[in-house]
């Protein structure tokens, strides 16, 4: 059995083993890797943020294209730093308010369209469903099943009235749909994690210790 001579591969393999060691129990090697990971992530994000945001949106346009007007939003952003002066810390609320106002204004129609109107549109029975009513994906039967599922799921989360009578039946059907949904999502997520695990083991056995060729 041969092993890799590349120091980078050794670094990746050892750090992966440090993280895997948590499966036994919490230990200093895992804690070291955990803090190294968060520290490196912060450093990485600072550098990427500087390159992608600070340079692209502020330094280059101002210094190279002389768009001095961009210093105005930067000056507004500097109000964040009044956080460090307790007497004037309320000034920090100005940039927060601007960001909150802009994003809430943008998000309101988008949320209504994407999460409410489009979902209603997708749930409605349409004429194309009658062409092949028993198609397992686009047929009328499936359309009815989805419509029933959506309405029952919503009633399960409707707490403004006591679940009695028809509401109780509907909510009970709703929980079955919710359970199928959660189970499917769980299964899908587990498989994604298992696929990552296989990827790590493959790396160890092929690139590090050359056990698999």
């Amino acid at each position: 059995m041969t092993m890799s001579t590349d120091p980078w591969v050794w670094l990746a393999a050892l750090l992966s083993l440090f993280i895997f060691s948590y499966l036994y129990k919490d230990n200093p090697l895992f804690k070291f890797a955990e803090h190294l990971f968060t520290g490196l992530s912060v450093g990485y994000l600072i550098v990427i943020y500087y390159n992608n945001i600070v340079r692209s949106y502020l330094l280059n346009p101002v210094l190279a294209d002389h768009r001095w007007v961009l210093l105005v939003p930067f000056a507004i952003g500097l109000l964040y730093l009044f956080r460090f002066i307790p007497k004037l810390s309320h000034l920090m609320l100005i940039p927060i308010a601007i960001t909150l106002g802009i994003w809430n204004g943008i998000a309101l129609p988008l949320t209504i369209e994407a999460d409410i109107i489009r979902q209603m549109q997708g749930t409605m029975i349409n004429t194309s469903m009658f062409r092949n009513p028993w198609d397992p994906y686009t047929g009328l039967a499936v359309g009815i099943l989805i419509a029933v599922g959506v309405i029952c799921t919503i009633t399960y989360f409707f707490f403004s009235r006591e679940h009695k009578g028809a509401l109780k039946v509907s909510a009970h059907i709703g929980i079955w749909f919710v359970m199928i949904g959660f189970g499917a999502s769980f299964g899908y997520t587990v498989m994604a994690r298992v696929s990552l695990l296989i990827g790590r083991l493959q790396f160890m056995f092929t690139e590090w210790i050359h056990l698999i060729k």
Partner: peptide
């Protein structure tokens, strides 16, 4: 994934949308 899962996800998304709005 495409049918019962989507029905429940759609119901939940609908609720999230109303709550967010």
């Amino acid at each position: 994934m495409q049918v019962p899962n989507m029905a429940s996800k759609r119901g939940i998304t609908f609720g999230i949308g109303l709550g967010s709005a």
